[in-house]
Design a protein around this nucleic acid. Structure first.
Lengths: 198, 198
DNA sequence: CTCCTTAACTAGACAGTGTAAAGTTAAATG
DNA sequence: CATTTAACTTTACACTGTCTAGTTAAGGAG
């Protein structure tokens, strides 16, 4: 079960963790291949043996972030009441909590894919796909008990996702109640009443 | 009224336009101080006389983008019906049209402010503030006829803004109907019914 | 044990980036 | 015309990602 490599214990994992640290500490511009390598105690060219270029490392980091993201949402869900609305709101609060706690991670997760995306290692790409889909499934499951918004089968989940994501981007990290909108309503107040399926 | 400078006609403006071109053509990574300078036919250090560093040029570009953004929204509004919901929907469609036509501009506009933001030229910062606030005011005005969502005075505008922004980021540029959500509902279907003020 | 292959890493170089300093040119001012 | 000053160029520096060529160590075959 041991994955001892030659010199470093587990460089791949160390690079991902270093990247997340750098993001959390210094924002999105602080994430650098060379700094990841340095933090892992390794030369600047070493990462090339585990990741095809910076985009691949970033993709692996983002995949890991989606796991943390899902965990946060699930933790909030498990601490909430059992009514459908309480569950849905809890997940949204988890969504917002993650943005507030890990703003740079959130930023890199939802940034439009850069250019070289087509040549990241296929397994990394697959993991990324899995983790991001999994995160969305949490929200989808919580939306399922409600009647479809606008008569569209995916209407509710799309509406909730857009709403919480927009709120997260525009307002979640705004200095307390200092936005172009003036005093900010809490998220629970702008989530519309959603009738249950009959 | 002529602003002839020594060598270049109007370098400041040329740099902003070059930046917008670069963004539109090559995405957010294509925006570079040196490339802006080259496209304006000037050495790479010339921009320093008009903008305090790259962040300042970016701020000026973003301010200009907000102007284009407002124009797009207003154009849609003027081509729409006069009912409050038609007006509001038209503005949202303008919002989404801008994202689809100028994805990189949209991206740089709503990116979290980078580090050196505190030392951009104060007039640029003020222009940015003005233009972005002005854009939001368009949405606010269109939200005014509706009863406050969640009983909160700013509830409606915050809800609409979050909804359209989230939809724009997550879905507007998705390959047609290929998203984790499955077949995508149009925006008009996920905008809730909003009762008018009485 | 020795030889060999191969994976993991290092060292160095390169083009491109933003920024800062010093030098040059041209317009404006007295 | 002489001087000042703004606009721009040149040069240099540190930092980035990537590529190439070495080096080191682990594991297997005889």
């Amino acid at each position: 079960m041991r994955k001892d490599t030659h010199h470093h214990g587990d460089l791949r994992e160390a690079l991902i963790l270093a990247g997340i640290e750098l993001l959390d500490e210094g924002g999105i511009d602080a994430l650098t291949l060379r700094k990841c390598a340095a933090r892992a105690g390794v030369s600047h060219a070493a990462p090339a043996h585990h990741f095809k270029g910076l985009v691949s490392l970033k993709a692996a980091i983002v995949a890991r972030c989606y796991r943390m993201f899902s965990s946060t949402m699930l933790a909030h869900k498990n601490n909430a009441g059992t009514t459908p609305r309480a569950q849905l709101l809890a997940i949204c609060e988890g969504y917002l909590a993650f943005t507030r706690t890990h703003a740079p991670l959130f930023q890199i997760m939802f940034q439009p894919k850069p250019e070289g995306m087509e040549r990241v290692n296929p397994d990394i790409l697959e993991e990324l796909e899995t983790e991001s889909t999994n995160a969305f499934m949490i929200l989808r499951a919580a939306s399922a008990p409600f009647a479809p918004v606008g008569g569209h089968e995916q209407g509710t989940e799309v509406m909730v996702w857009a709403l919480v994501h927009g709120y997260a981007v525009l307002f979640a990290n705004a200095p307390d109640e200092e936005t172009p909108a003036g005093v900010l309503p809490e998220f629970a107040r702008i989530l519309p009443d959603l009738p249950l399926r009959k």
